[in-house]
Every structure is written in C-alpha cells, then in structure tokens.
Simulated assay, not measured.
Amino acid sequence: MGGEGGEAPLRTRGNQPDVPAPDSPWDEIVPGLWMGGHQYRALSGRLESAVVDRQFDLVQTLLRLPGYGPDPGVEHHVWPIPDGPLDGTQLAGVIRLAEAACEALDDGRTVLVRCYHGYNRSGLVVAHALVRQGGTAEAAIRLIRARRSSWALHNDLFVDYLRAGLTTARLLEDLTE
C-alpha cells in the first residue's frame, strides 16, 4: 500500500481508484479539530457509514451525501468541491471554512471537517487551519498523515496549493479564469 517510509504514493484519487477506506470514521488532528469521511472500514472488514449526530459542535462538509448528519441544531457548513483542480471561488470557500474552524476552536468548540474518505478535501481545509494557527504547510501535512492516514493529502495538487499558500493559489486561479 505505501511508498517509501510507509507513506502512500502521492496521487490524486482520479489516478488511484483503489484508495483504501480509512480504519476510523474520523480522527483528532489537534485538540478539538477532527478530520473524517462518510465511510470507513470497520474491524469486521465491512464498509460502514460514518454518520454524525451531535458528536461535534461544528461540522464542515465538502461532499454532501444524504443521511450522514449532523443532527438538526448542529452548526453545519457545506461547501462541495471536487477532489481535483479548484477555481478561485472554490479556494475562497476552503479559506473561509478554515477561518470558521479556527474561530470555533478559539471558542473551545469541537470541529469535524469531512469529505468522502477524509483524506484530501478535508485535509486541505484542516491543513490550512493549522497554517493559520502558525504552523507550516509541511508540518501540517506531516501531522495530518500521522494522525489520519498515510493516504491523507495524497492529491499532489492540494499539496501544491498548501505549499504555495491558499491565498496565493486563489489569486493565481483568479488570473487564469
């Protein structure tokens, strides 16, 4: 499964359709900030739905599927984006989600950022939130891969966005539109 050092080869999901489902519905990256998906592989080996009820104060969803929660009354931000190239508007939404996650954390609230497997789209938001809190892109990527999965942020383009800085990537995308 992995490349050198136990890390997954860096590919986008489009080039690697056999990306394995994670072993847990969500994982805590830093205190209060969780990253997850809509499905995971249970100990039995079966794929299970990762349904959010009231486990988190704020849920941010980058791929919305019906029936996955959260419960009514839980703050829920939905910003569907592809696991591929993003335009300036999509990047601006990612930046806003990361800002909202940081604000919620500052207020002592718990946050779940989720996408399909909880690897790329959610990783982009979580990594940007970590950078906003003073970390580097490289440290954020390493931490996410250590805490969530070696498959996290296997989308090379998203890693490039993080290394360039999302604000810079957004400006560059706006210039090409």
Rank of each mutant, 00 (worst) to 15 (best):
residue 48 E to R: 14
residue 160 D to M: 05
residue 64 R to H: 11
residue 139 A to S: 10
residue 153 L to Q: 09
residue 117 H to G: 15
residue 111 V to F: 02
residue 173 E to R: 10
residue 43 L to N: 08
residue 46 R to Q: 14
residue 15 N to V: 00
residue 76 H to D: 14
residue 7 E to G: 00
residue 58 L to E: 00
residue 50 A to R: 07
residue 17 P to T: 00
residue 123 G to F: 01
residue 51 V to H: 04
residue 174 D to L: 10
residue 29 I to W: 01
residue 119 Y to S: 10
residue 46 R to W: 10
residue 12 T to S: 13
residue 25 P to D: 05
residue 120 N to I: 03
residue 86 L to C: 13
residue 15 N to E: 12
residue 107 D to P: 01
residue 66 P to Y: 01
residue 43 L to R: 15
residue 68 Y to W: 12
residue 57 D to H: 09
residue 163 R to G: 06
residue 68 Y to Q: 12
residue 122 S to F: 02
residue 37 G to Q: 10
residue 46 R to V: 09
residue 45 G to K: 04
residue 33 L to E: 07
residue 96 R to H: 08
residue 21 A to D: 09
residue 69 G to K: 14
residue 120 N to D: 14
residue 80 P to V: 04
residue 11 R to K: 13
residue 29 I to C: 04
residue 111 V to C: 06
residue 27 D to S: 15
residue 53 D to N: 10
residue 157 L to T: 14
residue 22 P to A: 00
residue 86 L to I: 09
residue 5 G to C: 03
residue 80 P to Y: 02
residue 23 D to Q: 10
residue 76 H to E: 14
residue 115 C to L: 04
residue 116 Y to E: 04
residue 162 L to G: 11
residue 25 P to R: 09
residue 46 R to P: 06
residue 47 L to P: 09
residue 47 L to T: 14
residue 48 E to S: 11
residue 87 D to A: 07
residue 74 V to I: 15
residue 100 A to H: 08
residue 54 R to K: 12
residue 163 R to F: 07
residue 69 G to H: 13
residue 144 I to N: 05
residue 129 A to K: 13
residue 18 D to I: 01
residue 6 G to D: 05
residue 5 G to M: 01
residue 16 Q to F: 10
residue 15 N to S: 12
residue 78 V to S: 11
residue 170 R to S: 07
residue 148 R to M: 12
residue 77 H to F: 10
residue 157 L to S: 09
residue 13 R to E: 09
residue 151 W to D: 08
residue 9 P to Q: 03
residue 33 L to D: 06
residue 175 L to I: 00
residue 34 W to V: 02
residue 14 G to M: 04
residue 24 S to E: 10
residue 121 R to D: 06
residue 57 D to K: 00
residue 128 H to A: 04
residue 118 G to Y: 08
residue 137 A to M: 11
residue 113 V to Y: 02
residue 96 R to F: 03
residue 48 E to K: 13
residue 4 E to L: 07
residue 92 A to Y: 03
residue 71 D to N: 06
residue 117 H to C: 08
residue 31 P to R: 15
residue 6 G to N: 08
residue 145 R to P: 06
residue 69 G to R: 12
residue 78 V to K: 09
residue 127 A to H: 04
residue 21 A to W: 03
residue 130 L to E: 11
residue 87 D to M: 04
residue 93 G to V: 08
residue 59 V to K: 03
residue 74 V to A: 11
residue 134 G to S: 06
residue 128 H to I: 02
residue 84 G to Q: 13
residue 108 G to H: 04
residue 8 A to H: 01
residue 77 H to N: 07
residue 78 V to G: 06
residue 93 G to I: 08
residue 8 A to N: 03
residue 105 L to D: 05
residue 147 R to P: 04
residue 137 A to F: 10
residue 171 L to E: 14
residue 71 D to K: 06
residue 96 R to L: 12
residue 161 Y to R: 10
residue 56 F to P: 03
residue 40 Y to Q: 09
residue 108 G to D: 02
residue 67 G to P: 02
residue 29 I to F: 03
residue 22 P to H: 03
residue 34 W to S: 06
residue 172 L to P: 01
residue 176 T to E: 10
residue 77 H to E: 08
residue 107 D to R: 15
residue 173 E to W: 01
residue 58 L to G: 02
residue 81 I to F: 03
residue 12 T to Y: 00
residue 166 L to W: 09
residue 124 L to D: 01
residue 170 R to W: 03
residue 170 R to F: 05
residue 49 S to V: 08
residue 162 L to C: 11
residue 141 I to L: 09
residue 94 V to T: 15
residue 156 D to H: 12
residue 16 Q to N: 12
residue 95 I to M: 13
residue 43 L to D: 13
residue 172 L to M: 12
residue 90 Q to L: 14
